[in-house]
């Protein structure tokens, strides 16, 4: 067992636990976006940052990937953490305003402004679909490619994958497309009133850069008949 201190409370957790697990065990809520129980921790969205250490050595780490260490002192909601989370949410809103998940998180953290140039990207590259496909569906049909600005997710060479079984798990787990706000005027998308759960691909025309790896896709096929 490992003993650590979270927000002043002592807690013992099993070897191999993460700081996130330890904090949740005590009931401290930490927002996450790229973490789902059952998939391996990845640490891409940085929303789950917490502050560890003290004095000049204090630093922020992603709690979903950081292992619980003996004697570690963790603060899950220090001013530095909150400031960072709000900025991350602002950045997320600036890139992907139509995700209901992101809108809700932003609202919960009292994010009231978005000062960057508005973009309408769909993918935040959290990698949930990649891990879902590999770890739960045992297919490994999609993966990351490129780096920096050019990073994206897709099947190898963007051709129909032989191992894809069209299970749709990638879409099910996606925080950006599954719960996308489908308000028809993207400019006004941060209205918070939207709870349309229809699969977004039905409105594919509107979002030509939408990511869908299903070929053929059920929704597209239905539309064809109309």
């Amino acid at each position: 067992m490992i003993n650590l201190v979270i927000n002043g409370l002592n807690v013992s957790v099993e070897d191999g636990s993460t700081v996130l697990e330890a904090a949740r065990f005590l009931g401290f809520s930490i927002p996450t976006l790229c973490h789902v129980d059952g998939l391996s921790p990845y640490g891409a969205c940085r929303l789950c940052v917490v502050e560890i250490g003290e004095g000049p050595r204090a630093k922020l780490v992603s709690s979903c990937t950081y292992p619980a260490e003996e004697g570690l002192k963790v603060r899950t909601a220090s001013a530095r953490v909150i400031r960072a989370r709000k900025m991350i949410l602002e950045l997320l809103l600036a890139s992907c305003p139509q995700s209901k998940t992101i809108q809700d998180l932003a609202a919960a953290h009292d994010v009231r402004q978005q000062r960057f140039k508005q973009e309408y990207e769909d993918c935040i590259l959290c990698g949930l679909c990649v891990r879902m496909c590999e770890e739960q569906m045992m297919a490994k049909a999609i993966g990351f490619r490129g780096r920096g600005e050019k990073r994206s997710i897709g099947t190898p060479f963007d051709i129909k994958s032989d191992v894809c079984r069209l299970c749709g798990a990638c879409m099910y787990i996606c925080p950006a497309c599954q719960l996308r706000c489908t308000y028809n005027e993207p400019e006004k998308a941060i209205c918070g009133a939207c709870a349309n759960l229809a699969p977004p691909c039905v409105e594919k025309d509107q979002f030509d850069d939408m990511m869908c790896y299903m070929d053929p896709c059920v929704a597209c096929e239905i539309q064809k008949d109309k």
């Binding site: 990845y42 640490g43 891409a44 969205c45 940085r46 900025m87 991350i88 950045l91 997320l92 600036a94 890139s95 960057f116 140039k117 935040i124 590259l125 959290c126 990698g127 990351f144 490129g146 780096r147 920096g148 600005e149 050019k150 990073r151």
Partner: peptide, 21 residues
């Protein structure tokens, strides 16, 4: 840096892009 970031951490990938912008 925005080209050479690996792109995994959202804040590094998008942060460098936004700083450049």
């Amino acid at each position: 840096l925005k080209d050479e970031s690996c792109g995994k951490c959202f804040t590094c990938r998008k942060g460098t892009q936004r700083m450049y912008e």
